[in-house]
Measured scan of single mutants.
Amino acid sequence: ENVVSAPMPGKVLRVLVRVGDRVRVGQGLLVLEAMKMENEIPSPRDGVVKRILVKEGEIVDTGQPLIELG
């Protein structure tokens, strides 16, 4: 699984990683606000951040690609 998608609609509050960062399974990639709750979106696997597909403040839909892992 190379693309991390939004599990719910919401607003991207914070991106916690940068392109080139090594991440571990379960590590927070970004914080999504949904229904006034902050939800940290975890990495599904170990890898390297290849691309960040959203910006802070952006509104996303369920299933929208957020981050690509390499």
Rank of each mutant, 00 (worst) to 15 (best):
Leu13Lys: 02
Val54Gln: 09
Lys11Ala: 10
Val25Tyr: 11
Val19Arg: 11
Leu53Gln: 02
Val12Ser: 10
Glu1Gln: 15
Ser5Trp: 13
Asp21Lys: 13
Leu29Lys: 15
Pro65Glu: 01
Leu16Asp: 08
Thr62Asn: 09
Gly28Thr: 03
Gly57Cys: 14
Asp21Pro: 11
Glu56Val: 12
Glu58Val: 11
Ile59Glu: 09
Glu38Phe: 02
Met35Gly: 11
Gly63Thr: 09
Val4Met: 04
Ser43Lys: 15
Ala6Lys: 12
Val4His: 06
Val19Trp: 07
Gly10Arg: 13
Met37Trp: 07
Arg24Trp: 08
Leu13Asp: 07
Ile41Gly: 14
Lys11Phe: 05
Val15Tyr: 11
Thr62Ser: 02
Gly10Asn: 08
Val48Glu: 06
Val12Ile: 02
Val25Phe: 07
Glu40Val: 00
Glu68Thr: 15
Val19Glu: 12
Ser5Val: 01
Gly28Ala: 04
Glu38Val: 01
Ile59Gly: 11
Ile59Tyr: 11
Glu68Tyr: 14
Ser5Cys: 14
Glu68Lys: 14
Ile41Val: 09
Leu16His: 10
Thr62Asp: 07
Ala34Cys: 15
Pro65Lys: 14
Ala34Glu: 12
Leu13Cys: 14
Pro65Phe: 01
Val54Trp: 02
Val4Trp: 13
Asp61Tyr: 05
Glu38Ile: 01
Glu33Ser: 08
Leu29Cys: 15
Gly57Met: 02
Val31His: 02
Asp61Val: 00
Gln64His: 07
Ala6Trp: 01
Arg51Glu: 07
Val60Ser: 12
Gly47Phe: 11
Asp21Arg: 14
Val60Phe: 02
Ala34Gln: 09
Val3Thr: 00
Arg14His: 08
Asn39Tyr: 08
Glu40Cys: 14
Val31Cys: 15
Gly26Trp: 05
Gly26Asn: 13
Val25Leu: 04
Val3Ile: 07
Gly57Ile: 02
Arg18Gly: 09
Ile41His: 02
Glu33Pro: 03
Ser43Glu: 15
Leu66Glu: 15
Val3Met: 02
Gly63Arg: 03
Val19Ala: 07
Pro44Ala: 10
Ala6Tyr: 04
Ser5Tyr: 06
Leu29Ala: 09
Asp61Met: 05
Val25Glu: 12
Arg14Ala: 08
Arg51Val: 10
Leu30Val: 06
Arg24Leu: 02
Leu30Asn: 13
Arg22Met: 06
Gly10Glu: 08
Glu58Asp: 11
Pro42Gly: 04
Glu40Gln: 03
Val23Trp: 12
Lys50Gln: 09
Leu30Tyr: 04
Leu53Arg: 07
Asn39Thr: 06
Val19Pro: 05
Ile59Gln: 01
Asp46Ile: 11
Asn2Thr: 01
Gly47Arg: 13
Val60Gln: 11
Leu69Gly: 04
Gly26Ser: 06
Glu40Ile: 08
Leu66Tyr: 10
Thr62Glu: 05
Arg45Cys: 14
Leu32Phe: 05
Pro42Ala: 08
Val48Tyr: 01
Glu58Cys: 14
Pro42Phe: 07
Glu38Trp: 05
Leu32Met: 05
Arg22Asp: 11
Asn39Val: 08
Pro44Thr: 01
Leu66Cys: 14
Ile41Trp: 04
Leu53Ser: 03
Val48Arg: 13
Val54Ala: 01
Ala6Arg: 09
Leu53Phe: 11
Arg24Asp: 05
Leu32Cys: 15
Pro65Asn: 01
Leu66Met: 08
Gln27Glu: 08
Thr62Phe: 01
Pro42Gln: 00
Val25Ser: 09
Met37Gly: 05
Glu33Cys: 14
Val48Gln: 09
Ile41Phe: 05
Lys11His: 03
Thr62Gly: 01
Ala34Phe: 02
Val3Ala: 02
Gln64Ile: 09
Asp61Ala: 06
Arg18His: 10
Arg45Tyr: 00
Leu69Cys: 14
Glu33Thr: 04
Val17Glu: 10
Lys50Cys: 13
Val31Arg: 00
Arg45Thr: 07
Pro65Asp: 12
Pro44Glu: 01
Asp46Thr: 06
Asp46Gly: 13
Arg51Thr: 08
Gly47His: 14
Glu33Gln: 01
Ser5Lys: 10
Lys55Thr: 11
Pro44Ser: 02
Asp46Leu: 05
Lys36Asp: 12
Arg51Gly: 09
Lys36Ala: 07
